[in-house]
Amino acid sequence: MSEVVDSSTPLLEFRGINTHYGAVHILKEVDLAIYPGELVCLLGGNASGKSTTLKTLLGMVTPTTGEVVLDGEVVNDKPTSYRVERGVTMVPENRRLFKRLTVKENLELGAYLRNDDGVESDLERIYEMFPRVKERLNQKSGTLSGGEQQMVAVGRALMANPRVLLMDEPSMGLAPALVQTNFELIQQIHEEGVAIFMVEQNANMALSIADRGWVLQSGRVVLDDTAEALLANPELRASYLGDGNR
């Protein structure tokens, strides 16, 4: 996590991306750019294509047209492993731990592609970050509580030593009290220099910690602005931020 931050070229970029599932057109001419060390978020209603955006960034879904660019290189036809090796890592929707494997095994799988010798020290770092996780190393991850699972999911992703963390609705299914803690955790990871690309339903909270954001509607980017501007945007306030609650 000690990469030189070169903030002039985007770390990860979409150039005119179109993604289809079969004949169904999901992402439409999407342009995005994530710069090193940024914390950005993607907002949008259900089925607007947020998860699809993440999967396309990671290479689990191949776009029909357009370019996915990693460090200035077009990586459309590179496999997921290529991108993971270069620091792109995802915390999947609903955490999706390997339920029948132990906590330790989950964490080790996060570092699957690494063969540097920082793995051990990174494990220690995660134990420090989540003392709870350390206590449960040999427990099956499926038997953890939701909050603990979130810790392991984040820990597993950090084990890949990422430069950018793609988080798909990290606060989904967490108790309200934990949501706050979770955002604090995200900020903490961000402060250590990891860029964060976060998909969230909880727009208010997400924007309050983010630098920038996009709003996706039926697969199209309809808003692209700084977080403050988005928070102030009356249109957005009406549709996503539940104006009046604040």
Partner: peptide, 20 residues
């Protein structure tokens, strides 16, 4: 062996971890 178990448990997450 660990990759096999990951694939057995959840193929698409295994893929996201960079496992072919």
């Amino acid at each position: 062996g660990r990759a096999w178990m990951a694939v057995r448990e959840d193929e698409s997450v295994a893929e996201a971890m960079g496992i072919n």
